[in-house]
């Protein structure tokens, strides 16, 4: 094979990126992310549920991914595996997804470079294809702040996509 080390930029350490116009991209360190799957897991979660395009304000919340699956953010520690008592599959995915906050007046414009998004069309799921990557996308704490969970192996690609999209604004 070839040595392509130089062709691919070495991933930088995750730091906050400050664009002009107050647009910032901030890596977020969450205490825990837990994937829960089970029948009616949405109806049975005790935590506020984040769906599109509402704004999450709680510190512990569940992302609605699909009919039978949520991602619990900052929830309690749970053992991995099948929990027969509650009929749910549980996995710690804290290291599976990298999380970014994209904040600023133009945050939504940047994201629209990567997907067909509409704030006025609600959706039960926060799963999106953004810049060609499967992500979870929702608003966190403020209407101009978008939080994204992306597979850790694709975080570099996601970051680069945002950086390329930004100068076009």
């Amino acid at each position: 094979m070839r040595d392509d080390s130089k062709k691919w930029d070495a991933p930088g350490a995750p730091t906050t990126l400050e664009m002009s116009d107050g647009l910032t991209i901030t890596p977020v360190q969450l205490a825990r992310q837990t994937l829960l799957s089970g029948v009616d897991v949405l109806g049975r979660t005790q935590h506020p549920i984040a769906a599109w395009s509402g704004v999450v304000t709680a510190q512990t919340y569940a992302l609605s991914l699909r009919r039978d699956r949520v991602l619990l953010v900052n929830g309690p520690a749970l053992a991995d595996g099948w929990h027969g008592d509650i009929a749910q599959a549980v996995s710690d995915v804290s290291d599976c997804y990298s999380v970014f906050d994209i904040r600023g007046d133009r945050a939504f414009s940047v994201l629209k470079r990567g997907a067909e998004l509409r704030l006025d069309v609600p959706s039960k799921s926060v799963a999106r294809l953004l810049f060609g990557l499967g992500v979870f996308l929702y608003r966190f704490e403020a209407t101009d702040t978008f939080r994204v969970h992306v597979f850790r192996g694709q975080a570099e690609t996601f970051f680069k996509s945002l950086k390329f999209a930004f100068p076009s604004l």
Binding site: K7, W8, D9, P11, D95, R113, F131, G132, F151, R152, G153, Q154, A155, E156, T157, K160, S161, F164, A165, S168
Partner: peptide, 15 residues
């Protein structure tokens, strides 16, 4: 558009 070069079929990166 922008999805060329390293963003064309981007590779996953190891921890």
């Amino acid at each position: 558009g922008h999805h060329g070069k390293q963003l064309w079929h981007p590779l996953k990166r190891l921890a």
